[in-house]
């Protein structure tokens, strides 16, 4: 079986996931890890699909349902495996008045101390007049949590609220 990354994006409406995944199931595909969420009124899907055929066959399988739902489709053959999770040891939340460059500033600082982002989601709340930016990051502090705390202190001095919580996974 080969793995493909299937990406679908389009105007949100109820039933997208059911229609898309039914078409894949009926076409003989299996799903691996997926991420599906609504962003700005669009519904976005990224999923690992295992399929014993080529990219064109997968494209043909999904085109009908994608067109009927108004979704853009993108398919990549990928080198992928399941059961390759990396356990995060730090959770970081960031918020502040929305302004250009928050993500670049925070993630740039994290990158310099070897922080490996495993999961990131961000959102804009507040009002149109006073938007607030909120970001959640889970990751692995490859050079230690103290190094991450030190670099986040510099970010805090610029008026961005940053909270770090160590993740100590309890295995029982």
């Amino acid at each position: 079986m080969k793995w493909y990354m299937l990406t679908l994006v389009g105007k949100d409406r109820p039933g997208i996931v059911a229609h898309v995944t039914s078409a894949l199931f009926e076409g003989g595909c299996n799903l691996g890890e997926t991420s599906m969420l609504r962003l700005g009124g669009n519904f976005t899907i990224m999923m690992m699909v295992s399929f014993n055929g080529n990219k064109h066959a997968l494209q043909d399988m999904i085109t009908g349902v994608a067109e009927s739902l108004g979704l853009q489709v993108h398919i990549d053959a990928i080198d992928a495996k399941l059961h390759q999770h990396i356990e995060p040891d730090v959770s970081i939340t960031v918020y502040g008045a929305d302004r250009a460059g928050i993500v670049a500033k925070v993630t740039g600082a994290l990158s310099e101390v070897g922080f490996h982002i495993l999961d990131l989601e961000s959102d804009v709340g507040g009002t149109e007049a006073q938007p607030i930016y909120v970001m959640y990051i889970d990751g692995k502090a490859n050079e230690g949590i103290e190094a991450v705390e030190a670099t986040l202190d510099l970010i805090r001095q610029e008026g961005i609220e940053v909270h770090l919580t160590p993740i100590d996974t309890m295995v029982g």
Binding site: H83, H85, E87, I167, D168, T169, M170, V171, G172
Partner: peptide, 13 residues
């Protein structure tokens, strides 16, 4: 809230 794993549930937390 805390993160948990389990010997009886490998590769998932």
């Amino acid at each position: 809230k805390g993160r948990e794993g389990c010997m009886s549930v490998p590769d998932f937390t």
